[in-house]
Design a protein around this nucleic acid. Sequence first.
DNA 1: TCTATGGTGATTTTT
DNA 2: TCACCATAGA
Length: 712
Amino acid sequence: METTSILENLNDNQKNAVCSESKNCLVIAGAGSGKTRVLIQRIFWLISSRKISPYSILAVTFTNKAASEIKKRLQANLRIKIENMWVGTFHGICYRILRKNYSKVGLPKNFQIIDADDQLRLIKRIIKESDIENDQIQPKQYVWYINKKKDESTRSSEVKPDDFVTKQYNLVYSLYEEYCRKVGLVDFGEILLKVVELLTKDKETFIYYKNLFKEILIDEFQDTNSIQYKLVKILSGNENSIFAVGDDDQSIYGWRGAIVENIKKLQKDLSDIKVYRLEQNYRSSGNILSAANNVILNNSSRMGKELWTEDSSGELIKFFSAFNDSEEAKFVVEKIEDLTKGDFKRSEVAILYRSNAQSRIFEEYFISKNIPYRIYGGLRFFERAEIKDVLAYLRLAFNTRDDNSFERIINTPTRGIGEKTKSSIREYAAKNNLPLYYAIEEMCEKKILTNRIVESLYGFMKAIEKIKDSFKIENLPEQILEVIEITKIKDMYSSDKNEQARSKIENIDELVTAADFFSDENQFDDIPIIESFLAHASLEAGEGQGSEWDDCVQLMTLHSSKGLEFPIVFLVGLEEGLFPSRLSLEEGNLEEERRLCYVGITRARKLLFMTYSQIRRQYGTEEYQMPSRFIGEIPTEVIEEIRPTKGESFFKSNLNDNNSILIGSRVMHKKFGEGTITSSEGNDNNARVQVSFDKVGNKWLILALANLEILK
DNA sequence: TCTATGGTGATTTTT
DNA sequence: TCACCATAGA
């Protein structure tokens, strides 16, 4: 590839970053400024101009989607085997390293990855079996504790608990650790932690990887947590180059351990690092950018950056104040109906909300109007119970010590093994220090169980043995088909005639197709394909739902909208307590909520609608909602109110007798503190006042949104 | 083993 | 309100 073609269509700042001669680079890239493009072009540039081997480049992303996007674009331009390049998620890359080095970190060859759901089940079992009774701590909290510790690369043995509760948490952590080690299970956090330990303890391995990865590129750097940062630092070995791309204003996963400060830390930790800023936006029109810029301006901890565009200012942002949530949904759906009758496809429209519960009411209206829609989120393919059941059979056959899988399927489909039998198996297993599967083998031989149960257990064991035989089948889809037959899992649902059961059967059939797809792209030649398929199932849970290709209106949370863009965006439920969410406010996370708002606004290309509902039904009761402070942070010049056909204007109805507001009045604002009104302009829905605040100086505020308190 | 009942609690979720 | 759980009874 020619250097000139690499630089084609890049602006000066993008070019400078792509061809930077600096050893380390940090690219602060605003929303829609072409950051992924820069990362990919950088890879091309490294290969063509700097003659770096493609296999010496490590490119890390957070999602499988981003990783496959990069791979796809690389494949289109490079005539090499992309599968052998090191492009993937943190977890995917680390899994690949572990596959090669499992024995060095004490893992068995057939170690298995467990997902979040497996992890929770396992914790629940451990709590039950070890008689740790504590109603105050829920299983999920233990999971949270363990994952947090692993993200900080701390083992249970390294924690010195000084209070009872921490002691309890850490006890469960140590039991969990012990169990996973014994059985050969790794959770998501463990995959990274094991690699960090491997690289810090085994010098030879460290040197191997340090010499391998000459160039390390990381996407979405603002989302790295402590262990991921550590990993990058270790792999760089203070020798290799780091090229990090990120946007501090789009850090929305702080609650999950992501540390925005890692961006600043990187600048401090690396001596030779050059910072590039990408501020030209190629996505949204001027008014939308103005709204985004002004909202994010209210955050104090920022690296500073202002988006601009060569595009025109475009349409004003449409604001609609609904009487209640049902009117809000009706407005949005009818508007979409109008827009899609015109120039827009349904798939070009997205509804973004803060919490999943908000989707319901929109669904109702879409259904009644017969408009196809698609909700993102929810269970993904490999997370579905029926799929996990089939996989649990495979896992158990693969590793008969896997009690977690055993528990999952011992009575699925039902074979008369109830809670009582299960607990006697557990008891026997514990007493003889055996995995559950070996326990039932012994128990059947020793005739401790009733004939009926022995018979049923034999049936189960026979199925597992048959699955073991099926491993000889070389063709993966055929093998999966065979396993589905053996388990008789479809019979469970075939008697049921309802929609749910039918879709479960469809999903199980779909698993064969998934296996078929997978056999084409398997990257590990040294292990049985079935094994890498199981890893794939855990690491890459698959897309949410089918029918992706249909022309549907897109519904999703603000979080899942990150990285996407739509010509038309509806940002709904702009209410205090909902967005920004009450819980976040209580935890002092207003700035992250504001970044979420920034993410939401910058998803829109041409048209942005924002809605607010005065009354919202929540938890069964109707509640009066205050408009979100974020609305007030958008300059009035770029907003246009859409008024319902009937009823009063939002701005007017909220202007409670403003006669009392006169120039010279002393007022109190939640954020800016006390001040004096110095002038006013406009009226009704546009009334604005200028306030001279004692601490922050002059500000223009929309009267209706500012919530000013008049002081006597 | 299945189903009915009551109590509880309620964001966001890349892997 | 509604989904999720644990427990009780059929």
